[in-house]
Structure formats: structure tokens, C-alpha cells
Amino acid sequence: MTGFLVRRLGGAVLVLFALTAILYGIFYVAPGDVAQIACGPRCSPAQVAQVTEQLRLNDPLYVQYGHFLQGIVAGRDFSTGTGVEHCSAPCLGVSYQSDQQVTQLILAKLPVTGSLVIGAFAGWLLLGVGTGVLSAWRRGRLTERVLTWLTLAGAATPVFVIGLLLIIVFCSTLQWLPAPSYVPFAEDPEQWAWGLLLPWVSLALIESAKYARLTRSAMLETLAEDHVRTFRAYGVGERAIIGRHALRGAVAPVIALSALDFGTMFGGAVLTESLFGIPGIGRELVHAVKVVDLPVVVGMVLVTGFFVVLANALADVLYALADRRVVLS
């Protein structure tokens, strides 16, 4: 088990390293005149030259990449034109727009995105697995058909469509809920929850569709297996077969997918945040993309990649733990 963990995490570190190289290549090398982008379209050639100097863009590429890596591992210093600013590890650079350190920017946004994801996660897991179990239990009946169509509809609805409709119905027309907003939990837990309710609900509704599918299909697969026949042949009732034997087969895939989704969402609940105006990582990213703030874009993509790689590794480990048939190798 330890060996498996070490190998899996070692692989994850390698993937992350490769990711930095790729991102660096795409974003700092490909777009051409980075200094012009950093300085802004209205900069005079003299200003651009100054920025080039500041960002040390005249150094060979591998030196620049070395600095980039060094910043992540050990921190680095930036010249700000007037002085030198230290950016401690893990340093992802400094925003062209706000001159803020990207790491600080991301750290400030993490609790926001975290609040959104955790609530929605609980919702979609409960709703999805519940729906899946119910439709596996009532298989071949009307309940299952209705649930299957609802699940399909859920899978076919983009989150921004359902979000828009929810806002229109509950906030504007009925005025039952305040407009979605973010209030830090530490400030006012009640406002925190009310403000995030709609984002939670819309994300949970959409995401639960695939958990329902997964749970149902895993349970139906198990129900078709020989060992279920054995327990039927020994007089074990349907409830015990569904609850004890069939559901057990769905545990491993559901846990694995949860870990994966959790990681992905952390880096990029882009749509939900943008739609509901939740100031998290995703919305910041969209903003950075629109103003071509390269360090912020690269930093956020890297952080997202980090979460996804971590979640992937976690998913593998959890799957192996939950499915005792898998031989760790």
C-alpha cells in the first residue's frame, strides 16, 4: 500500500512538473510580445523596453523558465521599477494588472470557491446517489422511467441555463431569496448560507444527474452478477440485496468520481461563479483572460491542474481502498 501511494504521488509530481513546462511554453513563449501585453496596448516603445528589462525577457528562454520554476519552489524577487519586491514560495508571479502577487490573489479566493463547492458537493452526492438507488430498486417500473428522464434532462441542461432560470424565478419574480452573493462564513454564517443557496442548488441539480446514472448503472451491474443470485437462492430479501450487496458495488466508482469532481470544481467552478457573481477563483480567471493578465491565468491554471492531479491520485487510492478486489500494483 505504501509503495502504491509513493508511486502514485511520485507520478502526480511528474505530471505537475510537465504541466508547468507546457503552460510556460504556451503562455510565455507562444503569444509573441509578452512585454507589450504586460505593459498594455497604449504603452510607448520606451515603456515596453523598460518592462522587457523588468521582466528580464531578454534572458534565454531556459533561464526565464528556470526563474519561473525557482519562484514556485523557492520564491524569487521582482523588480517593480522603483524597488525590489520579494515573492515567497510558491511564487506564481505578479499580476500585470494589479501588481498583486498571484499566490496571494489565489489564496484570497480559495475560501470563496471552497464554500461554493463544499455545499454543492454535499447536495449532489445526496441527491445523485439517492436517485440512483431509488431507480435501481424500482427498476422496470414507472418510477425508474421518470427518474431516468429527469436525469437525462439534468445532464442536458447547462448549469448557466438552470442558474439563470432559478435566479429569475426565486430572486426576481417570487422574491423569496436575496440575490446570490458571498458573505464570509466567519462574518455571518446565516447570510453565507442564504447567499450561496441558489448556486449550491443549481450546481447540485446538474451534477447529481451523473451520480444518479453512475449509481444506477453500477447497482444494476452488480444485481446481474452471480453472487446476488446466490443470496436470492438462500432466501435473502430484496431490501437486503439492494441495500447491502448491490449498493456496495457502487461505492467505489462513486467515491472515485467524487474525488475527481471535487478537485476539478475547486479549480474551476467557472460558470457558476460567473453567473452568480461569486468572487471565487473561476470568476477571477475569466476576468484575467479578458484582460490578458498572463501571470494570473497561468497561476490559476496551474493551481487548477494541481487540484485535478491531486484529486486523480486521491481517486485512485480511494478506489483501491473501497474496491478490495483491486490488487494494488
Binding site: 452471480d226 453472487h227 443470485r229 446466490t230 436470492r232 437462492a233 438462500y234 450487496h245 456496495r248 474496491d323
Partner: peptide
């Protein structure tokens, strides 16, 4: 089933719950 008449199946691996 099980109490008065019990069945022994062919493939013992797949006939028991792996979990």
C-alpha cells in the same frame, strides 16, 4: 431457500460477494 433446500453453484469465485 437455504433453510430446507440449499444450492451450491458452479463458479465459487463469482458466487460469493467479493466485498
Amino acid at each position: 431457500r437455504g433453510a430446507k433446500a440449499a444450492m451450491v453453484f458452479q463458479d465459487p469465485l463469482s458466487s460469493l460477494d467479493p466485498y
